[in-house]
Design a protein around this nucleic acid. Structure first.
Lengths: 192, 192
DNA sequence: AAAAACCATTGACTTTTGTCAATGAAAAAG
DNA sequence: CTTTTTCATTGACAAAAGTCAATGGTTTTT
C-alpha cells in the first residue's frame, strides 16, 4: 500500500525499518473515484496527498472557467499548501481524473512528525525545494518561450500526462484555449 | 549589518542570542554596485543571498531578450536554487538594480548550518515553503486573470517595486512588451 | 444497443498583443 | 553644464490568440 510513498521518501532521506514503521502510523490511505473531489475551494485543506496510483488535477475557477495549475500522477505529491499551512480557505479545487489511491498526511500527523522525526523535516524541505525549482522553471518557460516550444517541452517532460489527460486540460494548464492548442499541434505536425 | 536578516529569521524561527552568534559566524557580507552581477548564466551559483538593502533582479536570456523572473528588495532572499543545490551551471543572471548590501550564505556554510543548527533547517524549510506558495499564486494569476487585473494586483502587492524599478522591467516580469504595458496603464487611467 | 455527453478539429471573424519607428522627457555620464 | 543614454508613450501595421459555431468521432451512461 505505501510502497511508492516510501520508495520516494527513501530516495530523498534514507530511513531505517524502525523509522519507516514509526512514520507509517501517521499515514492515512484513501481511495478516490474518478471525478471525486479531494478538496473544494472554500474548504480548508487538511492534508498533503501522495499519489500511489492514479491521476489528479488542481485548478482554480475564475469567471466560471477552470484553470489547471497542476497535475499529479503516481509518485507526485499534491495539496493546497497555502491553505494547509495557514488554515485559510482553499483557493483551489483538487479532483481525481482517474480512480486513485492516495497516502494522506493530515495536519496533525504533519505536526507530530515534525516534532518527533527529524528526518521528516528534511524530507519536507527537500520535497518543497524540488517543487519550487520545478515551478520556477515552468514560470520561466511560460514567460520566455514561444508556445510551440513550451508544448514540445511539455510532451517531452510529461509524456504520460499527454497520454492520460484530455487535451483541453493540457491547454488549460498552459494557459491556452483548446482551439489554440489544437492549431499548434497541427502546425507542429506539418513541420516534419 | 545583519539586522534585517536576523529580524526576518526570528519571525520564522525564534533564536537565542547564542544561536544567533553561532549563525553569524557562517554569514558573509557583500556589497554590490548598481549593474554589478551577483551571478551570471553559466557560472555555478554558490550562495543564497539575503538583501539587507537595495534591489536586485533575476532573469533569463532567451533569443537575446531578458525575461525577469524575480525581483528582490530588502528583506527578500534570492538565488538560483537549482544551480545552488545541484552544482549545475546557472540558467539565470542576477544583478543589482541599485547599490545593494547582501548577506550571503555560501554552500559550505549552508551545509554546516544544516548539520549543526536544527533551527536552520526549519528556517530554510519555511523560507522555501513561503517562496513556493508565492510562486504558485503568481503562476495562477498569470494563467487565469486578465492582464489589467494582474497589473493592478502587482501594483497593490508591490508598490515599492513599482516605484523603484523601470516599467519595462515590470513588463518583462509580467511577460509583456513595454508597449503593451504602457497601453494597459493608459486604459486603466482612463477607467476612472 | 441506443442515447447522451464529451472531445478534438476546423473555419470565419474579432480582439489582443507584438513589432517597428518616431518623439520628447528624464536621468546618467562626461 | 552639455551630451548621451535610457525610458515611456504613441501610431500604424502585422501576427497571434480568443470567440463562436459546426462537425464528426469517441467514450460514457442508461
Amino acid at each position: 500500500m505505501y510502497n511508492l510513498f516510501f520508495q520516494k521518501y527513501n530516495e530523498k532521506v534514507p530511513l531505517s525499518d524502525e523509522e519507516q514503521e514509526q512514520i507509517k502510523k501517521y499515514l492515512t490511505p484513501k481511495k478516490l473515484r474518478k471525478k471525486q473531489y479531494l478538496l473544494q475551494e472554500g474548504d480548508v485543506c487538511k492534508v498533503i496527498a501522495f499519489v500511489e496510483n492514479g491521476a489528479l488535477r488542481e485548478y482554480a475557477v475564475e469567471n466560471g472557467k477552470e484553470h489547471i495549475i497542476q497535475f499529479a500522477l503516481e509518485g507526485w505529491t499534491i495539496s493546497d499548501l497555502f491553505s494547509f499551512f495557514t488554515g485559510e480557505p482553499a483557493t483551489y479545487h483538487i479532483d481525481a481524473l482517474e480512480d486513485t489511491e492516495l497516502v494522506l498526511i493530515t495536519k496533525d500527523a504533519h505536526e507530530e512528525l515534525l516534532k518527533t522525526q527529524p528526518k521528516y523535516e528534511t524530507y519536507m524541505r527537500l520535497l518543497i525545494t524540488n517543487a519550487y525549482i520545478a515551478l520556477q522553471r515552468r514560470l520561466t518557460s511560460n514567460i520566455s518561450l514561444p508556445i510551440e516550444e513550451r508544448y514540445i517541452n511539455f510532451t517531452e517532460k510529461y509524456p504520460d500526462i499527454v497520454q492520460r489527460v484530455p487535451q483541453h486540460m493540457i491547454a488549460s494548464y498552459m494557459g491556452l484555449t483548446p482551439e489554440t492548442l489544437s492549431r499548434i499541434r497541427k502546425k507542429l505536425a506539418n513541420r516534419k
